[in-house]
Simulated scan of single mutants.
Amino acid sequence: MPNHPTGPGLLVLMCGTAYSGKSTYAQALAARLDAVVVSLDEINERRGLWGGDGIPVEEWIRTHELAGAEVRALLAAGRTVIVDDTSSLRSLRDGWRSLVAGAGFVLVYLDVDHPTIRRRQAGNRVSAARRDVADAVLEQHLADFEPPGPDESPVRITSV
Rank of each mutant, 00 (worst) to 15 (best):
residue 1 M to W: 02
residue 4 H to T: 12
residue 4 H to C: 13
residue 9 G to P: 02
residue 12 V to G: 01
residue 12 V to H: 01
residue 15 C to G: 04
residue 15 C to A: 04
residue 15 C to S: 09
residue 17 T to H: 13
residue 18 A to L: 04
residue 19 Y to A: 09
residue 21 G to K: 03
residue 22 K to D: 02
residue 27 Q to I: 07
residue 27 Q to K: 12
residue 28 A to Q: 13
residue 28 A to W: 01
residue 29 L to G: 01
residue 29 L to W: 03
residue 32 R to P: 08
residue 34 D to E: 08
residue 34 D to K: 07
residue 35 A to N: 00
residue 36 V to P: 00
residue 37 V to M: 06
residue 39 S to G: 00
residue 41 D to F: 01
residue 41 D to L: 00
residue 42 E to W: 04
residue 42 E to G: 08
residue 42 E to Y: 05
residue 44 N to S: 10
residue 45 E to W: 08
residue 45 E to H: 13
residue 46 R to F: 11
residue 48 G to A: 10
residue 48 G to R: 14
residue 50 W to F: 05
residue 50 W to I: 09
residue 52 G to D: 13
residue 57 V to S: 11
residue 57 V to M: 10
residue 58 E to N: 04
residue 60 W to L: 14
residue 61 I to S: 12
residue 62 R to K: 14
residue 65 E to Q: 14
residue 67 A to W: 03
residue 69 A to L: 09
residue 69 A to R: 15
residue 72 R to K: 11
residue 73 A to C: 07
residue 76 A to M: 03
residue 76 A to D: 12
residue 80 T to E: 05
residue 85 D to C: 11
residue 85 D to V: 09
residue 89 L to E: 10
residue 89 L to V: 06
residue 90 R to G: 04
residue 93 R to W: 00
residue 94 D to F: 06
residue 98 S to N: 11
residue 100 V to P: 00
residue 101 A to D: 15
residue 103 A to I: 02
residue 105 F to H: 04
residue 106 V to P: 04
residue 107 L to F: 01
residue 108 V to K: 01
residue 108 V to I: 04
residue 109 Y to L: 04
residue 109 Y to F: 11
residue 109 Y to V: 02
residue 111 D to C: 08
residue 114 H to E: 14
residue 117 I to E: 15
residue 119 R to H: 12
residue 119 R to D: 15
residue 119 R to I: 06
residue 121 Q to V: 07
residue 127 S to E: 14
residue 128 A to T: 14
residue 128 A to N: 15
residue 129 A to H: 13
residue 134 A to R: 10
residue 136 A to K: 10
residue 139 E to T: 08
residue 140 Q to L: 15
residue 141 H to Q: 12
residue 146 E to H: 02
residue 146 E to K: 02
residue 148 P to E: 01
residue 148 P to C: 01
residue 150 P to E: 15
residue 150 P to Y: 04
residue 151 D to N: 13
residue 152 E to L: 02
residue 152 E to V: 00
residue 153 S to K: 05
residue 158 T to E: 13
residue 159 S to G: 13
